[in-house]
Design a protein around this nucleic acid. Structure first.
Length: 211
DNA sequence: CTGACGATTCACT
DNA sequence: GTGAATCGTCAGC
């Protein structure tokens, strides 16, 4: 996958997010571009790894059993906003909220391929040079793109954060579905094939997929 | 108010 | 492979 822009960015419309099949949306987000512009600085990355969290019936989801708390309330919003929360007291994890109001679906973005603003991403992460660790893993994605828990609930169709389609197509044969990462507590739901990756992309987290 | 813990990462053995 | 870092969230008292 080349880190080049195929054509002008087209901001994904709300209709993309408000559909009911979050697993399908997670798959379709592969190849799309996250664009953030904070304090006038733009950084972008192409999504290469996602995970679907399938609402009230998904034991791995924070919204399992329709649990509404101050933190999870944003997951119950109308699709098209960001759900960002703090994990292990350190990492800010970025999710895309989907479906309609009161149906708490979300897609966790686990890895992107850096495109624009790599110098700024290096500054934010304190890394010296570009390598796959810059945006591999959900904590690193947020750090590089400048996404913080303060951005939870923020619109994904505004100017500060949005997701764009530049016409790039990930070949269906290059997409693989696997179990989600770090959700062992979810019992049988941990086995669901809700994680999507672009095969052989160096920015995808976890161990290399066996053939 | 208190304590346990997490959709992780990184350094170290 | 193992363990520490680090703090907001949440259930329970």
């Amino acid at each position: 996958m080349k880190a080049t822009i195929v054509s002008p960015f087209n901001k994904l419309p709300l209709s993309f997010y408000r559909r009911s099949n979050v697993v399908k949306i997670a798959k379709e987000l592969l190849g799309k571009i996250i664009v953030t512009t904070f304090d006038g600085i733009t950084t972008t990355g192409r999504i290469v790894e996602t995970e679907a969290y399938n609402g009230a019936g998904d034991k791995a989801s924070h919204a399992y059993g329709n649990r509404r708390t101050n933190r999870t309330e944003v997951m119950f919003s109308e699709g098209g906003v960001a759900y960002v929360y703090l994990c292990y007291g350190i990492h800010h994890l970025f999710n895309v909220v989907t479906n309609v109001k009161d149906t708490p679906h979300a897609v966790l973005v686990r890895a992107v391929e850096p495109m624009i603003g790599i110098e700024q991403m290096l500054l934010r992460t304190g890394k010296r040079k570009l390598d796959s660790t810059l945006t591999k893993g959900p904590g690193n994605v947020s750090k590089a793109l400048g996404i913080h828990t303060r951005h939870t609930g923020r619109s994904l169709t505004g100017d500060e954060m949005f997701i764009a389609d530049d016409g790039y197509i990930v070949k269906p044969a290059a997409v693989a579905a696997t179990m989600r990462i770090g959700v062992d507590y979810a019992a049988e739901d941990a086995l669901l094939p809700y994680r999507f990756i672009v095969r052989d992309n160096p920015f995808v987290s976890g161990r290399k997929l066996k053939l």
